[in-house]
Computed example of a mutant assay.
Amino acid sequence: MSINLNDPIKIFFDEIEIDNYLPSIKFKIDINMKQFTHHLAYSGEIWIDCNVWDLFSKGLNKRESAVLHDMNDVFIIKIIKKHEFIEFAWSVKRQDPEGNVMTATYSSKITDDVYSLIRNEFTNYPKWW
């Protein structure tokens, strides 16, 4: 099972494992974005707690701000509802034992149509928990 977003950036969530003991899902994540004259590609694996998934989906259904993050708070997607607009934000931050850090972030205003597409992808994801 997968989630595929094409707007505002391309994000592909591919389910690769589930854990019934601590209900969670492991995804392979692929992100590709082009902004101005730059291109950024990110690929990694993350575990998302099913309770966090549910809170994110409920927030999207209520048309409220919502946050999806992995169990290590490395990967974060935020949908921020402001009075004047809706903002989509994504970030990833990894640090190795030696202290080397890799960080990438992106944010963009999105339309109601894009918000609806994002909401549908996440809320229609088949739940097994």
Rank of each mutant, 00 (worst) to 15 (best):
F75M: 01
I29F: 01
K78T: 05
H83W: 13
I79T: 05
R63D: 04
V74F: 07
N51H: 13
Q35C: 02
I76W: 04
E64H: 07
V101T: 15
T37S: 14
F13K: 02
P97W: 15
E87A: 12
D19K: 02
S65V: 06
K127C: 01
W129T: 09
I46G: 00
I46E: 02
D19A: 09
N32V: 07
C50R: 05
D70A: 04
K34N: 12
K127S: 07
N32A: 06
M71I: 03
S2R: 06
A104D: 15
I46Q: 00
I29V: 14
K10R: 11
V74S: 11
V52Y: 01
A66I: 03
F12L: 07
I110C: 09
I118T: 02
I80D: 06
D49H: 00
E84P: 01
S107N: 08
I110Q: 03
A41T: 14
I3A: 03
N6F: 13
R63T: 04
I79V: 10
I46C: 10
S57G: 06
A66S: 02
N4A: 12
E64R: 11
I77Q: 01
I86C: 02
G99Y: 13
N124A: 13
S2D: 14
K127M: 12
K127I: 01
Y125E: 08
E121W: 02
N4L: 15
D96R: 04
P8C: 07
N100K: 15
Y21S: 09
D54P: 01
W128K: 03
D54Q: 06
M102C: 13
I77P: 10
N4M: 11
D49N: 14
V52H: 10
K93T: 06
E84R: 04
H38R: 12
A41F: 11
Y106C: 11
F13T: 05
E87D: 13
K58Q: 15
V101N: 14
W90H: 08
D113K: 14
E17P: 08
G44L: 12
S43G: 05
A104F: 12
G44A: 08
L5Q: 10
T105V: 07
H38N: 11
K26C: 13
N124K: 07
V52N: 12
E15N: 01
K26W: 10
F88Y: 02
I77E: 05
T103N: 11
Y42A: 04
V74D: 08
V114L: 04
I25T: 15
E64S: 03
K78W: 08
I77D: 00
K78H: 13
N4T: 15
Q35M: 13
M33V: 11
S2A: 07
E17D: 13
K109A: 11
E15R: 13
T105R: 07
I110M: 07
S2I: 02
E17C: 05
E45K: 14
D14G: 05
